[in-house]
Amino acid sequence: MTEFKRKPVTDIGIDKTLESIDEDRIKKAIDRVLKGEASARLKTFVTTCARCGMCSASCHHYLSHNNDPTYAPAAKVKQTIWDMLKKDGKVSKDDIKKYARIVFSECNLCRRCVQFCPFGIDIAYLIGLVRRICCLIGAVPQYIQDQVLSHMQTTNMLWFRQDEWLDTVQWLEDELRAEIKNARIPLGKKNAEILYLAHGLEAKYMTGLLTNMAKIMIVAGVNWTMPDCDGWDYTNKSFYAQDTETMGMVVRRHYEVAFKLNVKRIVMGECGHAFRTGVYEGARLLGWKEEPIPYIHGVQ
């Protein structure tokens, strides 16, 4: 592997955090994740990788950087979690800054490399562990930190208050009636077939997408509803930071609303990461082997 070379970048969420912590805190975070939270998959994947390079051509970061070997999935693991293991968690602040840059800006956990690995090594899982360590330390890009904090406080990604949500849906319903007579966007309706959750951006900046979904539901004659309370946003940016506590809280809220309204299924729009948190990662964090009621992607 050639030398790791990148242009310098700054991020207040990472740089300011590293100014205020010591290496003992870093060691404790690494030990907590790698020795306490990680599963047997960690040892299996790390010891199984043959460094064959089959994963390289699957990675869009590798391909878009002129096949620079330091962007290859296996190389990203070697430069992060393997480095931590080699040093027994005794890493420097500069090491953490390097790890954070790799796992937050050079891998989006798409898992495409898993399909190319002859051993089925889940590199996204390994990179996710590094993100989790950075999260516990607080070395997370500021933009992601802000959205995670918004999820913690409001259960949506954009600091949208509940009254703003209700006003927005009412306004969209009025606009929709210009095209469909007596159109309704039902809120808090019990015993509906579908609970539709929206993307945070649909409520604040891309309202036309929410209106289009309402048109589909109305014209198709679907018995549907949306939340009349917090928990309407299906996005879960805590996944990006691997803040598992907040991730589980947000997912639990989605199911709580569905239980309260006694719907038959949850439907969400376009967001692959949110789908993974609702059906897989988030559900398992809550102790469920599978989602308690069907959670369907809009494409399905």
Rank of each mutant, 00 (worst) to 15 (best):
T2E: 09
T2P: 05
T2N: 09
F4I: 03
K7C: 01
T10R: 02
G13R: 01
S20A: 10
D22F: 15
I26G: 00
K27C: 02
D31P: 00
V33C: 01
V33M: 02
G36E: 04
E37W: 06
A38F: 03
S39T: 07
L42C: 03
T48H: 02
R51G: 14
R51P: 13
C52N: 07
C52P: 01
M54N: 15
S56M: 13
S56D: 15
S58H: 10
H61W: 13
L63A: 10
H65K: 12
N66D: 15
N67T: 07
D68N: 15
T80W: 11
T80P: 07
I81W: 04
K90F: 03
V91G: 09
K93T: 11
D95T: 09
D95F: 05
K98H: 13
Y99R: 00
I102N: 04
L109Q: 11
R111V: 15
R111S: 14
C113W: 01
Q115D: 13
Q115C: 14
F116W: 05
F119L: 09
I123A: 11
R131Y: 04
I133F: 05
Q145Y: 12
Q147G: 00
V148L: 01
L149S: 10
M152F: 04
M152C: 08
L158E: 03
W159P: 01
F160P: 01
Q162T: 14
W165C: 08
E175A: 10
K181I: 08
K181T: 13
G188L: 02
K189R: 14
K190E: 11
K190D: 11
I194G: 07
I194F: 07
L195P: 00
H199D: 06
L201N: 08
E202H: 04
A203N: 06
Y205F: 13
M206R: 01
T207K: 04
T211D: 04
N212P: 00
K215S: 07
M217F: 14
M217A: 06
I218W: 03
A220H: 13
V222L: 11
W224S: 03
T225H: 03
P227L: 02
D228Q: 03
C229M: 10
D230E: 12
D243Q: 03
G248Y: 02
V251I: 13
R253E: 13
H254I: 08
A258Q: 05
K260V: 06
L261G: 01
R265A: 08
I266A: 06
G269D: 11
G272S: 04
H273K: 14
F275H: 15
R276L: 09
R276A: 12
E281S: 07
G282N: 08
G282F: 10
E291F: 02
I293S: 02
I293K: 00
P294D: 03
Y295K: 00
I296T: 07
H297Q: 13
G298N: 12
